[in-house]
Design a protein around this nucleic acid. Structure first.
Length: 555
RNA sequence: GCGCCUGUAGCUCAGCCGGAUAGAGCAACGGCCUUCUAAGCCGUGGGUCGCAGGUUCGAAUCCUGCCAGGCGCGCCA
C-alpha cells in the first residue's frame, strides 16, 4: 500500500511538472508512513516538506498542487488533507485494505518473509557457554535472542546456520577437573583443601560422586595429572550433555557443536598463526607473540602466544573465526554476554587482519538478567555456586513464558525477570495475551465447524467487502506492518520488534473480539469475518514461531 | 583515567538511519461476563524524553560537553 501511494505521489509530481505547475520533477527523499495518530490518516507523506526547497515553494502550497494532480485509478483514497507544516494525510476506503487480506491469506507461512538476504550464508553463534557448569538465566536470554535472530534472518532470506562453540580446552577445563578431583578425593576420605578459585557448586560434588561410582578409590592411585584429566573429561562431557538437554527443553537446537579442542587437533590454530606471522601481523616481543590488532581499530596489540609458549584464548578465537569464513559463511554473527564487550574491537580487528571485511562480522551483546521473585532479587553468586539454573526457571515458568519474556526488551537493555510474574496467567504476562488470541480464534473456528457447518475458510470477495468496521480495518492495518517489522528486525538484529508487533496485533484483536461477533446470523458477514480472523491467527502463529513460542489451540 | 551500554509517565519499557499533540503495559480510579474462552475489553488521570549547548523548516532521535548507573579495560577464559 505504501508503495502504491509512493508511486501515486511520484506520478503526481511528474504530472504537475509537465503542466508547468512545478519547477522540477524531483521529489526528494520522501517517505510514506503510517502515522502514529489515527486522525492523521492511514498513511501520511512528508513529500511537500522534503521537496519544498527544491520547488521554491511553501510546503503547504506545494502539497495543494500535488493533491490537485493526484490520480487514484484504483479508487483507494477516501479523502486527503494537508496538515501541520505540510504533511499530506491519506484516508483510505475500507475496500482498499481487503486485497491485502487475500494476499496475506495466500502467502500463508511465507507472509512477512522476504528475499532481502538473497540466500546469503550467515552463521549465528550463540550460547557457547563453557562446559564447566549448568546454564543459568543469562545464558537463557542469549539462547533465545540467538535463536530468534536466526529465525528472523531465515525469514528475511538468509541461509542460516546455528552453532555452539565449546570451550573444551584450556585452563577452565583443567580447573573443572581439579575441582571434581578434589571433591572426589574428599569422598575417598582424604583431607583436602578446596581452593577458592575452584568451582564451588553442588554439581561438582555430584560429578565427584559419579567418578567415585565408576572408579571407586582407584583413581587416587594414579598420577594426579592423569587423574585430574580423567575427571575433567568426564565432567565436561557430563555437563555438556546437560547443557544440550537444557537447551533442547528450551526449544533451542544447533546445527553444529564446534569444539575448540578440535581446532588444535586439526592444527588450525597453528595454521592461522603461521599465516599471520608470514604476513607480519603476528610478531614477537618480550618473549611473547602479538597480533597487530591496533592497526585494525583495536586499542592495542594483543598477545596470542604467551611467554610460556601456550596460546591464548584469543588465538583459538582467531583460528575459529577464520574457519567460519573458510566454511563459506559470508556473514558471521556472534551473540555474547555484554560483559565481553571489551572483546569486540579485538575480534573485529583480527577478522579484518585475516582478510575479511569488518562488516562481515557482527556481535550482539546481550545484557544482564536480574532474576526476581515477587519483586525481590533472587540471590545469585556464580562464585559461591549459588544460582538458579535455566532448567529450573524453565521448569517453573514454562518454556513459552521464559522465551517470550526474554524477548520483551531490546537485547542491550538489562532485563528484570520476575519468576512470579512469569508464572501469572493474567494480562501482566504478555505471552498469554498473545497466545490467547490464537486460542480464541481456534475456538471460534471449532465452533464455526461444529455449529455452523463451516469447515473451511473461503475467500469470497462479497464477504470481504462487508468488513468495514473500524476494528476490522485496524486489524488488517496491524497485520500489514508485519513484513516491515520482520525486515527491520532482521536488518538491526532486533527480535524484540517482533514481540512488540505481536502485542499490538493481539491488542487489536482483543478489542475487535470484545466489540463484534464473528459468528453471526448473516452467513456472508460470517464468512468475511472468519476469513479475517483466520488470517490473524495465521500471522500470530507465524510471529510466535519466529520467537520460538508455541501457538496453542486451547488455553 | 580510557572505552562501550543505559538514562523517556509512580513502576517496567517501546519509539532513536530527523517529522505533526512523545506511545504501550502495570499500578490508581470508574465501567463491561444469559451470546464465539474475562488469560479479555472500554474509559479517566499521569511527562522539563538525565542536563546544557549545537545542526535543522522541524530533535526523544544527529553532533559536542557534562551528570548518574551498569559493564569492560590481563601474557585469564
Amino acid at each position: 500500500m505504501k508503495q502504491v501511494l509512493q508511486e501515486m505521489i511520484r506520478a503526481a509530481v511528474a504530472r504537475a511538472h509537465q503542466s508547468g505547475a512545478l519547477y522540477s520533477d524531483a521529489t526528494g527523499d520522501f517517505v510514506v508512513e503510517a502515522p502514529k495518530l489515527d486522525h492523521h490518516g492511514d498513511f501520511a507523506s512528508n513529500v511537500a516538506l522534503v521537496s519544498a526547497k527544491q520547488q521554491r515553494m511553501a510546503p503547504r502550497r506545494l502539497a495543494e498542487i500535488l493533491l490537485a494532480h493526484l490520480d487514484d485509478p484504483g479508487q483507494r483514497i477516501e479523502r486527503t488533507e494537508i496538515a501541520g507544516p505540510g504533511f499530506i494525510n491519506f484516508f483510505l476506503r475500507p475496500s482498499a485494505w481487503h486485497p491485502l487480506l487475500v494476499d496475506i491469506h495466500r502467502a500463508g507461512a511465507r507472509y512477512g518473509a522476504s528475499d532481502a538476504g538473497g540466500g546469503q550464508r550467515v552463521q549465528v553463534e550463540f550460547v557457547s557457554a563453557n562446559p564447566t557448569g549448568p546454564l543459568h538465566v543469562g545464558h537463557g536470554r542469549g539462547a533465545v535472542v540467538g535463536d530468534a535472530v536466526a529465525n528472523i534472518l531465515e525469514a528475511a532470506g538468509y541461509q542460516v546456520q546455528r552453532e555452539y562453540y565449546i570451550n573444551d580446552s584450556g585452563r577452565q577445563i583443567r580447573t573443572l577437573g581439579l575441582s571434581v578431583y578434589l571433591r572426589y578425593a574428599a569422598l575417598c576420605g582424604r583431607q583436602v583443601d578446596f581452593p577458592e578459585n575452584c568451582y564451588q557448586g553442588d554439581y561438582i560434588r555430584d560429578l565427584a560422586a559419579q567418578v567415585h561410582q565408576r572408579r571407586g578409590d582407584a583413581l587416587l592411585e594414579e598420577e594426579e595429572t592423569a587423574a585430574v584429566d580423567f575427571c575433567a573429561r568426564l565432567a565436561a562431557g557430563t555437563i555438556l550433555d546437560g547443557i544440550r538437554k537444557d537447551l533442547e527443553d528450551f526449544g533451542v537446537r544447533f546445527d553444529q557443536w564446534y569444539s575448540e579442542q578440535s581446532l588444535f587437533d586439526a592444527g588450525r590454530v597453528e595454521a592461522a598463526l603461521d599465516e599471520l606471522r608470514r604476513r607480519g601481523i603476528v610478531y614477537e616481543k618480550d618473549g611473547a607473540q602479538w597480533c597487530r590488532t591496533s592497526e585494525y581499530g583495536d586499542e592495542k596489540d594483543r598477545v596470542v602466544v604467551r611467554q610460556n609458549g601456550l596460546t591464548t584464548y584469543f588465538a583459538s578465537d582467531i583460528a575459529y573465526h577464520r574457519d567460519k569464513y573458510a566454511r563459506g559463511f559470508e556473514r558471521v554473527i556472534d551473540v555474547w554476554g555484554a560483559d565481553h564487550h571489551g572483546y569486540v574491537a579485538r575480534m573485529t580487528a583480527a577478522i579484518e587482519a585475516s582478510g575479511q571485511r569488518r562488516d562481515q562480522f557482527q556481535v550482539i551483546l546481550v545484557h544482564l538478567v536480574n532474576l526476581l521473585r515477587g519483586g525481590q532479587p533472587v540471590a545469585m553468586s556464580t562464585r559461591a555456586g549459588e544460582f538458579v539454573t535455566l532448567a529450573e526457571v524453565v521448569a517453573e515458568v514454562g518454556r513459552d513464558a521464559a522465551r517470550f519474556i526474554f524477548l520483551t526488551r531490546h537485547h542491550e537493555s538489562a532485563l528484570d525477570f520476575d519468576l512470579e510474574l512469569a508464572k501469572q496467567k493474567t494480562n501482566d504476562n504478555p505471552v498469554y495475551y498473545v497466545q490467547y488470541v490464537h486460542a480464541r480464534i481456534a475456538s471460534i473456528l471449532r465452533k464455526a465447524a461444529k455449529e455452523h457447518g463451516i469447515s473451511e475458510v473461503v475467500h469470497d470477495p462479497a464477504a470481504l467487502a462487508m468488513l468495514t468496521e473500524a476494528e476490522e480495518i485496524a486489524l488488517i492495518k496491524a497485520m500489514a506492518a508485519f513484513p516491515e517489522t520482520v525486515a527491520v528486525a532482521a536488518a538491526h538484529l532486533e527480535p524484540h520488534r517482533v514481540t512488540f508487533f505481536l502485542m499490538e496485533l493481539a491488542a487489536a484483536f482483543h478489542a475487535y473480539y470484545n466489540r463484534h461477533r464473528v459468528l453471526t446470523e448473516d452467513a456472508r458477514l460470517t464468512r468475511g469475518r472468519l476469513f479475517l480472523v483466520a488470517t490473524v491467527q495465521q500471522v500470530i502463529a507465524r510471529g510466535l514461531g519466529l520467537l520460538g513460542v508455541s501457538a496453542p489451540e486451547r488455553m
